[in-house]
Design a binder for these strands. Structure first.
Length: 122
DNA sequence: ACGATGACGCACA
DNA sequence: GTGTGCGCCATCG
């Protein structure tokens, strides 16, 4: 064969990053998703940290980063950080109720919305 | 190669 | 509810 030497499984992680970005981009306005949910969504349940890394690497307007929160529907940033304030403001502008500590009240999660759409819910 | 780090998650005290 | 420990994975010094 022309290429007896195979390349390593490098595309795996690269493809995962793309899939993660697409998943985040798929979060509708007014809804949120956790890091773990996004990871599970792309078939990598244990890659929550990779989701965080992708976000930090992606451009600000590349993906709706503010719709990605930590497990328990709370903002991942420290309270006094600039990111915290900005994310809280954006979430509130999208109709969410965010406590001062970053806890999102009665969050409309993308996963729930998805389940609600696909499941017969009349 | 190795230890430290990070926009994480979960169990437990 | 808070603090600590461990697992998990890619990246960095």
């Amino acid at each position: 064969m022309a290429t007896p030497r195979k390349k390593a499984v490098q595309p795996t992680i690269a493809a995962a990053k793309v899939a993660i970005r697409e998943a985040i981009r798929g979060i509708p306005r007014g809804a949120i998703a956790t890091y773990g949910e996004i990871a599970a969504r792309v078939g990598l349940p244990k890659y929550a940290r990779l989701v965080a890394r992708v976000l930090s690497q992606s451009g600000a307007d590349d993906v709706p980063w503010h719709r990605v929160v930590r497990a328990g529907d709370r903002i991942a940033f420290p309270r006094n950080s600039d990111g915290f304030v900005r994310q809280r403001a954006r979430l509130q502008s999208e109709g969410h109720t965010v406590s001062a500590n970053g806890q999102i009240v009665a969050a409309r999660r993308a996963s729930d919305l998805d389940q609600q759409l696909w499941g017969n819910y009349f």
